[in-house]
């Protein structure tokens, strides 16, 4: 798209764009390119000299069992959060889309968790499911479930999934609701005249028409689980117990903090970048196809 009318001259526009360019280059391109460059280097033990080692850092990374474990953890975590947050959000959105009184109030009451910081969401759920003092966690143990997210990896993962889903449902709900409201009523009425009942109408008409939204939310949710849930993980489990809830992003952070190999850490960052770029590219391609349709 282009504007028909413009102003002439180019010192002014260059001045206007300068601040953004400067910040982008200093805090984005510089660090990103350094990460890429560093991922090909190895520092000696004293950090005094470094040599170019090609893809060795990547090779070394894929020899670490912990890296695979982080990958698997990430996949499990994202799959669960994506599934639950999308399913719950869709259920709530279809109900809120019905012509009921007070629909707007329900919307307000459902969307505010978006404003809660991930770390805080984690703290709230940890408190609620604390094995000895939590309002819900303690009864679990009393009933003999042996619930302890601090010691048991599965329990820890469950708690993370719950808090991450809780925080993200509001976002998906909002977009699903907007998507539902954008479906012309006449299409659904035509379905009703064609003899489809409410359930059938949902799965054969509404859900397919909603698929662009669903796909978009799927990608956004995965990106959310990859990056934004860092706060939840750090607040709730700190990647533990015994590294069982360490995701790829958390591993970058933890390795860096423990002063590990810079090259390895950089290689991890680069892999993450590639994943996000791939996700975004898929999304753009999909959106484009949708537009052409």
């Amino acid at each position: 798209m282009e504007k028909r009318a413009h102003f002439s001259g180019w010192t002014l526009p260059l001045l206007l764009i300068l601040p953004q360019m400067a910040i982008t280059v200093i805090f984005f391109y510089l660090p990103a390119s350094q990460a890429i460059w560093q991922s090909f280097l190895r520092e000696d033990a004293f950090g005094l000299a470094s040599e170019f080692v090609g893809l060795e850092n990547y090779a070394a990374l894929f020899e670490q069992p912990e890296y695979y474990r982080a990958m698997i953890t990430t996949v499990i975590f994202s799959t669960l959060v994506a599934f639950f947050s999308l399913a719950v959000a869709l259920l709530l959105a279809t109900q809120a889309d019905k012509n009921i009184r007070g629909g707007h109030a329900f919307k307000t009451l459902l969307i505010w968790p978006y404003a809660v910081a991930p770390a805080i969401a984690g703290v709230l759920w940890m408190f609620m499911f604390h094995p000895t003092l939590g309002t819900l966690g303690r009864p679990l143990n009393v009933m003999g479930f042996n619930w302890n997210p601090m010691l048991d990896g599965t329990d820890a993962m469950i708690l993370l999934v719950l808090s991450a889903t809780w925080k993200h449902v509001s976002y998906n709900f909002l977009f699903f609701l907007a998507g539902l409201q954008a479906i012309p009523k006449s299409v659904i009425e035509a379905g009703a005249i064609d003899g489809a009942g409410p359930v059938r109408r949902f799965w054969t008409i509404v859900f397919p028409l909603l698929s662009p939204t669903t796909f978009f939310l799927l990608v956004v949710t995965i990106v959310y689980v990859f990056f934004e849930t860092f706060g939840i993980i750090d607040a709730v489990t700190g990647g533990g117990p015994a590294g069982q809830t360490t995701t790829l992003v958390y591993k970058v952070y933890a390795d860096g903090r423990s002063g590990g190999d810079l090259g390895l850490s950089a290689a991890q960052s680069v892999i993450l970048m590639v994943i996000v770029i791939a996700l975004t590219a898929i999304q753009f391609r999909y959106v484009e196809r949708k537009v052409q349709y």
Binding site: Q38, V223, F227, Y253, S269, I277
Partner: peptide, 10 residues
């Protein structure tokens, strides 16, 4: 495309 988390240390 790239959130701050992926380029955090640099």
């Amino acid at each position: 495309m790239l959130p701050v988390e992926v380029r955090i240390y640099p």
